[in-house]
């Protein structure tokens, strides 16, 4: 999933300072799962913004709505009936959602209320960790199911570097060395000899080096 975290309150407050009618839009997908921008968080942020305005002795009109998927024009269309009645939109979706809304409603300023962080997986209640960088040419099949791009701090394809100690990455003890994990997994799978295969310099084009990525499926388009 795409993970996100709410922006500092003061940043959001500054964005909306000039406006008195706000459409606050959450998303039911990833940001709901990582508790950054789902229905609950929309309610909480709305409440916080009210408390802020009460502090200033002002009021603010906030329309709360949480879409099924904010990165999908079909659902973003659901905002149409409200958009003319507000001065600005605050989106709690990931950057993809924010841009879909901004692209559809060109006359309304759209502000992000979350910082989109990474593509990750849940490690347990309230903990998420980066797992994929969308390199466009997945090598998990030869690295024992552990991503060297997202999980090695130096994106090494022929690791580990000399900095690993006690199985942890040189950047610090909170991070497992991806190449230690790869090696252990290869051993478990009885594929140790694979380790000495040289992994060639990567073609970064599918992962973004060729410019913004785009997928066109003729059979669906």
């Amino acid at each position: 999933m795409i993970t996100a975290e709410q922006k500092p309150m003061q940043e959001i407050i500054q964005y909306i300072a000039p406006y008195s009618k706000i459409l606050l839009v959450g998303c039911n997908e990833c940001v709901t799962v990582c508790a950054a921008g789902g229905r609950k968080e929309v309610g909480l942020l709305a409440s916080a913004l009210h408390l802020n305005h009460l502090k200033q002795g002002k009021t603010i009109d906030i329309k709360e709505i949480t879409l099924e998927r904010q990165c999908d024009p079909e659902y973003v269309e659901e905002l149409a009936p409200y958009i003319d009645g507000v001065d600005a939109v605050v989106s709690m979706a990931c950057g993809c959602g924010v841009q879909t809304v901004a692209g559809r409603y060109k006359k309304s300023p759209v502000f992000p209320a979350v910082n989109t962080r990474f593509m990750g997986a849940s490690l347990g209640q309230g903990v998420w960790a980066e797992r994929c960088k969308g390199c466009g040419d997945c090598v998990l099949g030869i690295t024992g199911g552990i991503c060297p791009v997202a999980r090695c701090s130096k994106h090494l394809f022929n690791g580990p570097c000399g900095g690993t100690s006690n199985g942890q990455c040189e950047i610090g003890p909170e991070t497992d060395c991806a190449w230690r994990l790869i090696w252990e997994r290869l051993k478990e799978l009885g594929m140790e000899d694979r380790y000495e295969d040289l992994m060639n310099a990567k073609d970064w084009r599918p992962g973004g080096a060729a410019g913004p990525g785009k997928i066109i499926r003729e059979d669906l388009a």
Binding site: K154, L156, N158, G163, W204
Partner: peptide, 26 residues
């Protein structure tokens, strides 16, 4: 490969790591 930027005086820098040291040798 190079030490991670985290240890230096520009910890906010983006590491390049286009190719790794083995690929550089090659």
């Amino acid at each position: 490969s190079g030490d991670h930027a985290k240890f230096g005086d520009h910890p906010m820098a983006k590491g390049v790591f286009d190719i790794d040291s083995v690929q550089m040798i090659n």
